[in-house]
Design a protein around this nucleic acid. Sequence first.
DNA 1: ACAAATACCTGTAAGC
DNA 2: TGCTTACAGGTATTTG
Length: 285
Amino acid sequence: MPELPEVETVRRDIEAVYIGDRLQSVEVSGPRTVRRHPAPLLRQIEGLVLTRTARWGKYLMLDWSGGRRLVVHLRMSGQLRHATEGSELVAHTHAVLRFARAGELRFVDPRTFGELFIPGTSGTPGTSGTPGTPGGPADAELAHMGPDALQVGAAHLAALFAGHRAPLKALLTDQRVVAGIGNIYADEICFAAGVRPDRAGRDVSRGQVRRLAAATLEVLGRAIEARGSTLADRRYCDLYGRPGSFQDQHCVYARAGAPCKTCGRPVERAGFGARRAYLCRRCQR
DNA sequence: ACAAATACCTGTAAGC
DNA sequence: TGCTTACAGGTATTTG
């Protein structure tokens, strides 16, 4: 499941290959892949040069000459893959961006939750500046999102947790609160901070907030270094189809029954509300 | 205003 | 063996 570290890995891979290259054509074959606006609008970026990339939470932005932007969200099973021009399409290839020199960038997504869109074309008001967002001017479609998880500090987290009775994990994975954390990294961050994921936001102590802020940067940073987490289902792979290796460093996620790496007590999988979390009851309070 | 539930999907695995 | 069912989970939307 692509979360912030996986999207960041793909972003860096794309930056290394396609920056400065001209987009020859865009072909979309999956009707659900471009669903925010009529699919032909994607052709606005044909002929333009990729000038920069950005990421906000799990959203990936590809910026083009002339000020155009293409936004990609991989959701559950989406992958962006480099391919040589004309090579055989793997199953569930829904879009192909053909570049002048670097070959093709393909969007593959079995479950069709992922999407591509040109911001500002879906009936919502156009772009307007929102300060402090790493992607530059905020797009209306992304305006609801909180700060990127790599940008948040303890003070920010404390303010966002205050007064919420929702469990910590629900807050960490709420993109309006912090953008970029999903199921895997919420569990790992809670473990690294020594805080129970089912603790109500308002009951998270000052010290725990500090530890959560530090753990967020530390865990996500190490995960980016390891090029993300690839589980047995291989739903996430990089631009070249290679797996990440951060799953080898997971302390709790998908480790139910295995000994806690700190204290040896079996890791539990607990349900609260509609969600579940992996945790160590001894190490997390 | 917040929070909980649901729809959206399909590949995989577990159960019978 | 073959069929059915549960599960995975991010986000937009709906309901409470």
